[in-house]
């Protein structure tokens, strides 16, 4: 597992049904591009998060493909509609096969 990978997400705790809410996500990751060389001139192998998904109660909100041009500590902001109370699931897929996820509940009135 890549060391020190830590997801952060910001989702409102409550909303009204059908509301548009803004979601922000950030994960600590080096996003090693595969373009850099170490002090001995050897290419440092690519090691990035290559996919990020956000789902709500099993339905997709956004599905992102990441390339090495995404900055260190990848950040995304996007908008979702919440039809009912439930849980957001956020998933990041690492080149090394690791999967990091976190979830957030939202109360919809």
């Amino acid at each position: 597992m890549a060391s020190g990978v830590k997801p952060r997400v910001k989702v409102p705790k409550t909303a009204s049904a059908g509301d548009t809410i803004t979601i922000k996500t950030l994960i600590s990751h080096k996003m090693e591009s595969g373009q850099r060389k170490d002090d001995d001139g050897n290419v440092i192998p690519r090691s990035i998060i290559n996919r990020f998904t956000a789902d709500f109660n099993g339905q997709n909100v956004i599905d992102v493909t990441l390339e090495p041009a995404i900055s260190t500590n990848p950040y995304f902001q996007f908008e979702a509609v919440v039809p009912e109370s439930g849980e957001f699931t956020f998933t990041w897929y690492d080149d090394d096969g690791d999967v990091y996820d976190t979830s957030k509940k939202i109360e919809v009135s």
Partner: peptide
């Protein structure tokens, strides 16, 4: 102007509220 031109693809699902997104990239 990057060594690899692709940066990212956003696919919007049924619960996306707007077809918009923000991120931070390397140039």
């Amino acid at each position: 102007g990057n060594p690899v031109p692709n940066v990212a693809t956003f696919k919007f699902g049924p619960l996306s509220a707007s077809r918009s997104a923000s991120t931070r990239i390397r140039l």
